[in-house]
Amino acid sequence: MSRGTKLSLDLGASWNEGWSMEEETTAKAFTILEPSAHRLVLQKEKRRGKAVTLVGSFSLSEEDAQKVLTTLKKSLACGGAYKEFWMEFQGDIAPKVHEALEKLGFRFKK
């Protein structure tokens, strides 16, 4: 681009021509399973320098998942959250989480 030339930012689309942005639905096929039908996976991550233990993916209703999460947080004495079918626990506590979930009837992949 030489000196003195103006930059044109027109892309050729007009808002008046009926152009609209369509929202994508990312709704996943969701079936509620009983605890013994789950095949959970444990993962460890670092977030902001801290260890986080991830367990999932759960096929529970939102209410049931929150009840399980509350029970686990109390028994493990740690913080955590339920996001997008995964439970996140603060700290590197994978063996404790594994034992606690097995007591509740959940199963894990080998």
Rank of each mutant, 00 (worst) to 15 (best):
M87E: 03
T53Q: 09
A51Y: 00
K67S: 14
V68A: 10
G91K: 00
R47V: 15
S2G: 14
S57H: 08
K110S: 15
L54M: 07
S8M: 06
D92K: 11
E24H: 08
A29M: 06
E23N: 12
G18H: 09
E22R: 15
G49D: 04
M87L: 09
E24Y: 07
R39I: 00
K109H: 07
D92A: 15
K44V: 14
S57T: 13
F30P: 00
V68L: 12
I93T: 03
F106R: 05
L69E: 11
G12K: 09
S2M: 05
L7A: 10
A13G: 10
M87W: 06
V68W: 05
M1C: 07
T25M: 07
R39W: 00
E22P: 00
K74L: 04
A27V: 08
D10E: 11
K83D: 14
G4S: 12
W86G: 00
A94E: 07
L9W: 11
L7M: 12
K28C: 01
E102C: 13
I93C: 03
W15Q: 10
G18A: 07
T53Y: 03
F106L: 04
D64W: 01
L42C: 07
W19T: 13
L7K: 13
K44R: 15
N16S: 13
E24A: 09
A77F: 03
G49Q: 04
R48S: 15
D10V: 10
I32N: 06
L33R: 09
T71G: 08
G80W: 02
G79Q: 09
S75D: 09
V52Y: 01
Q66M: 12
A100M: 05
C78P: 00
S36N: 11
P35Y: 02
E23M: 13
